[in-house]
């Protein structure tokens, strides 16, 4: 279970609070969606869960499986099962995607006490998972995300998620910039990962994605606070009325 309690966050070198007391609980086996206007703090929340150190938690806590993860480094969190699919995946020239995947998979396996995969086992694994996401071996030979289209980058994120076998998945606007076919491929990939052992937090600006990834709950984040929580029908309401109501409410 993911428990976020009264989370206050500011930027390291600035005094403005971005998250101003977020409370949120996602039990295992559930998918929760976070929606909200641009600038409301959705990406910040996802980064803080993953452990980016540009942010400072001034109050509150984040617990995963009953333990605070705030003191863990990003790689320790990944080993503990935390995975963030980035809104803007980073390009890394000079690092082949395949090398990166193997390094990452083996790093989390070692950290979890599972031991490294042999080259043959790794290749079998990567072939199976990338086929499901329509990712070619040629693409994996290219430097990480360099020259990838928007859709390729997002599929690559979901591939990493499939291969690192996380138990807490945070997807930050995985749908943005994708056409409907790409959304379907990505959503199918995410749905395949759904399990009673996993908690998922799906951040999106649009309701559209939630037609494919059906959430158990929808939360609205506005100006750094959860201002409304409801069932999946809340997403449809938002589609109708927009975010104006919440922006005013929070102000």
């Amino acid at each position: 279970m993911l428990e976020i309690k009264n989370l206050h966050v500011k930027i390291e070198e600035d005094d403005t609070e971005i998250l101003r007391g977020v409370d949120l609980t996602v039990p295992k086996g559930e998918i929760h969606a976070i929606m909200g206007p641009n600038g409301s703090g959705k990406s910040t929340l996802s980064y803080v869960i993953a452990g980016k150190d540009d942010y400072e938690v001034t109050e509150g806590d984040i617990l995963w499986n009953g333990e605070s993860i705030l003191e863990l480094s990003p790689d320790e969190r990944a080993a503990a099962g935390v995975f963030l699919a980035f809104q803007y995946p980073i390009e890394i020239p000079g690092v082949a995607t395949m090398t990166f995947l193997r390094t990452a998979v083996n790093a989390v396996r070692v950290a979890r006490g599972e031991g490294e995969l042999s080259v043959a086992d790794f290749m079998r694994f990567v072939k199976e998972k990338s086929a499901e996401l329509n990712i070619s071996m040629e693409m994996l030979k290219r430097p990480l995300n360099v020259g990838f289209s928007g859709g390729e980058k997002k599929r690559n994120e979901v591939l990493q998620m499939a291969m690192l076998e996380p138990s807490l998945c945070v997807l930050d606007e995985t749908d943005s910039g994708l056409d409907i076919d790409a959304i379907r491929i990505v959503s199918d990939g995410v749905n395949r990962l759904k399990s009673p052992e996993k908690a998922m937090l799906v951040i999106t600006h649009y309701q559209r994605l939630l037609d494919y990834i059906v959430p158990d709950k929808v939360h609205v984040l506005s100006k750094g606070k959860i201002v409304k929580t409801g069932g999946k029908e809340l997403a449809l309401e938002l589609e109708e009325s927009g975010y104006a109501e919440f922006v005013n409410e929070a102000a």
């Binding site: 452990g51 480094s73 990003p74 080993a79 980035f86 980073i90 990166f100 990452a104 989390v108």
Partner: peptide, 28 residues
């Protein structure tokens, strides 16, 4: 730092992540 964070968020420990980035740099 953005590159480093991305690698670390994928479970790669800091030392190894830095090494990967240095190798990528000279690798070109």
């Amino acid at each position: 730092d953005e590159l480093l964070f991305y690698l670390r968020a994928r479970g790669i420990p800091e030392k190894k992540a830095r090494a990967l980035l240095v190798q990528a740099f000279v690798g070109e």
